[in-house]
């Protein structure tokens, strides 16, 4: 199997997430049409596309929050729709765009919720240890006893990623992980995801608006347009002026900065 990254070619037996011909519609409104994607462990996949292209819907279909009308999502060959909710929860972590947390809760308790698929009513010393490890890995130990609702957007995003990591997933799905963050936090979060993919051998799938961040940190890009895959492949092959113009209706200049495409949108066509 030749992967888009080129770097990890030839290794076999790695975890694989396959999306095969997924079609989904909300009632009579079609959202996804025959979408097929393949990602492996240690890869970061960026899903880009204009608003309403189906990015979030695709993530929800992968995660079994939504059930596709046609097609299947396979985790190492096993059909996700045949797994129990708990089984999916043990293998896939999901970080939504925002968390509607109303009541004050400590960061520690939020991350501990990620252990829900693994624990019984009591949480063991092992669960507490896992939380400590994740907090440490994300360098947010000093936030542990702070109230989640009082944190900044960037800190909250990290805590939510920590919560998903406490699930010990093989696949990490993220919906717009950088949407509310300043430049520094954007880079921090993206670097974190890259490290998680490289070191923990996770499959990382993120829906993302920022084409430059996608170009820089993703191994593969899937460009969705009106529920269909318009283009897929390496960032440099997908993020071309022609594709951007067709999908977003925007004139853009694409140059190269340190080996990655750099996109400067100019004006709407």
């Amino acid at each position: 199997m030749v992967t888009a990254t080129g770097e990890h070619e030839g290794k076999i037996g790695r975890m694989k997430l396959r999306i095969r011909g997924v079609t989904f519609s909300y009632g009579s409104i079609p959202a996804l049409n025959d979408v097929s994607i393949e990602v492996e462990a240690s890869e970061v996949l960026g899903i880009v596309g204009p608003n309403g292209a189906g990015k979030s819907t695709l993530l929800r279909c992968i995660n079994r929050i939504l059930k596709p009308q046609r097609g299947a999502v396979l985790l190492d060959g096993a059909d996700v729709s045949e797994m129990s909710m708990l089984e999916v929860a043990r293998r896939m972590g999901y970080v939504p765009q925002n968390s509607p947390m109303v009541f004050p809760t400590t960061v520690f308790d939020v991350v501990l919720m990620g252990r829900r698929p693994h624990l019984s009513w009591r949480c063991s010393a092992d669960d507490v240890k896992k939380v400590l490890e994740v907090l440490k890995a994300l360098r947010i130990e000093d936030l542990a006893m702070r109230d989640f609702t009082e944190l900044s957007g960037g800190q909250q995003q990290k805590v939510l990623i920590a919560r998903a990591l406490a699930q010990e997933p093989e696949v990490l799905l993220l919906d717009e992980p950088t949407s509310n963050l300043d430049v520094r936090h954007q880079l921090e979060v993206m670097e974190l995801l890259r490290t998680l993919a490289d070191e923990k051998k996770l499959v990382v799938v993120m829906a993302i608006h920022d084409l430059n961040l996608a170009a820089r940190f993703a191994d593969k890009i899937v460009m969705l347009n009106a529920g269909r895959i318009f283009a897929a492949g390496k960032p440099a092959d997908v993020l071309t002026p022609k594709n951007i113009s067709k999908v977003y209706g925007v004139d853009a200049v694409v140059s190269e900065v340190s080996g990655k495409p750099f996109i400067l949108p100019l004006k709407p066509v």
């Binding site: 079994r64 929050i65 929860a89 999901y94 968390s99 947390m101 698929p117 624990l119 799905l173």
Partner: peptide, 23 residues
């Protein structure tokens, strides 16, 4: 009382709850 964990998880929103295996 048995559903204490599920009530915890519900506070994160329904989508997150579902992703944690809670209907």
């Amino acid at each position: 009382v048995l559903k204490a964990w599920d009530l915890n998880v519900l506070m994160l929103g329904d989508e997150t709850a579902k992703s944690l295996g809670v209907d």
